[in-house]
Design a protein around this nucleic acid. Structure first.
Lengths: 212, 212
DNA sequence: CACAGACTGGAGCGATCACTACAGGGACGC
DNA sequence: GCGTCCCTGTAGTGATCGCTCCAGTCTGTG
């Protein structure tokens, strides 16, 4: 709220600051009240900027919400661990998976509103917001692909040839499990993420063992 | 729930018919547009009844939405399989679990809007709708308890004494997995539920084996 | 100091919001 | 027939919705 008086005029990024203030305010409101519950009036009150400024940066409410999804995702991937092979991640697939999931779930509570907004867009089935929803789905697919690639890189050539779809199946399981964990987290702060990691690792080991 | 039902079959049914028409229309709209996206105007258009009728049966929008949750849940449990020991469910825990989950996931696509609305209420964190949200959480707890009881009834006395919290942990896993599966189902009709069942059964077997 | 472009402030547009007042109308008991 | 009760239909309340218009105030450039 009480940030950045115009008394210290920075470079030309004053423009970007207002834009971001509107985007973050809209993201918080969208995460709390859903798509239709996000009103321009609420955005102006939380951001401290008038409606004319909102419409200066964004052509309409739909476009604003689409940019909110894009912006909150950019913040999310900045904190989210890469699904890439990391020397620190241990030697075996299970150790690596545990390491990467541990970093992932740790960031879940403090995560920005990306997942909340995304899940709402999935649940709310409207056609108008096609842009924001489409963008979230595309992002989701990209994450699934990188997780699948991570799995593939841990498979032997034999398994890779025998079960080419296994990596993507496992990726979908990881995502669905994360969704369930995230939703449970919306209810109470309890629920040990480590238990969930143990479970996911067990699933993957089981699946790979069955396939191998 | 409230007024004494007229025992005569005629007009009493018509009264209830109007009430149900409003409730089902509101449930569909809430499942599509979320809590704040559900407007009285939309309800009147879809139900074919005027706003005065809506306010004749429900004191305000909040109360209508709370009744929508209650009503959609009653329809849901009518179709949902009981988490009770059933002779048809096979002999082992794994077989019984597979049987009951199979019936459960089969009803998922055609399920009423109970889960959609409930998930939205979990994501939309407002205080106004406390009544509807509270009711969904209570229902969720009740389901978790009955699933946990089902698990306990399949445990030996030794395991029951050694890991008293195991049943509830497994119940939470089943619910979270179902949530993830449900959300994935909102994206595309694809995704084989049988694969998910296999996974959940594997988790449970693994957890029980570890504990036993 | 003048000028232009980039924002802000505020008033206000028509439409829709949740909600209400009230005059009926159809089914009943008498 | 008459009155009662339950529900519907119509019209309208003030508030808020998404959005626009435009004058005013900044900023950087010459």
């Amino acid at each position: 709220m009480s940030t950045a008086r115009p008394t210290s005029p920075g470079p030309g990024d004053e423009r970007e600051m207002s834009r971001v203030r509107i985007l973050t305010a809209a993201a918080e409101i969208a995460a709390e009240h859903g798509y239709e519950g996000t009103t321009i009036s609420k955005v102006t009150k939380r951001s401290g900027l008038p409606a004319s400024s909102v419409y200066w940066f964004f052509r309409d409410k739909d476009h604003l919400l689409a940019e909110v999804v894009r912006h909150s995702f950019e913040q999310w991937i900045a904190a989210e661990p890469r699904w890439e092979r990391d020397p620190r991640d241990g030697r075996s697939l299970a150790e690596g998976l545990r390491s990467i999931l541990s970093r992932s779930t740790r960031g879940l509570p403090g995560a920005p509103d990306f997942l909340r907004i995304g899940h709402m867009l999935l649940l709310e089935s409207r056609e108008v917001e096609a842009e924001a929803r489409q963008y979230f789905l595309a992002t989701r697919d990209a994450v699934a692909s990188s997780i699948a690639a991570w799995f593939t890189s841990h498979f032997g050539t034999g398994l890779r040839a025998r079960r080419p779809e296994l990596a993507m199946d496992l990726a979908r399981i990881v995502i669905a499990s994360t969704d369930g964990l995230f939703l449970a987290h919306q209810i109470d702060e309890a629920g040990d993420p480590d238990d969930f990691i143990t479970i996911i690792v067990a699933i993957v080991e089981q699946a790979v063992a069955d396939a191998g």
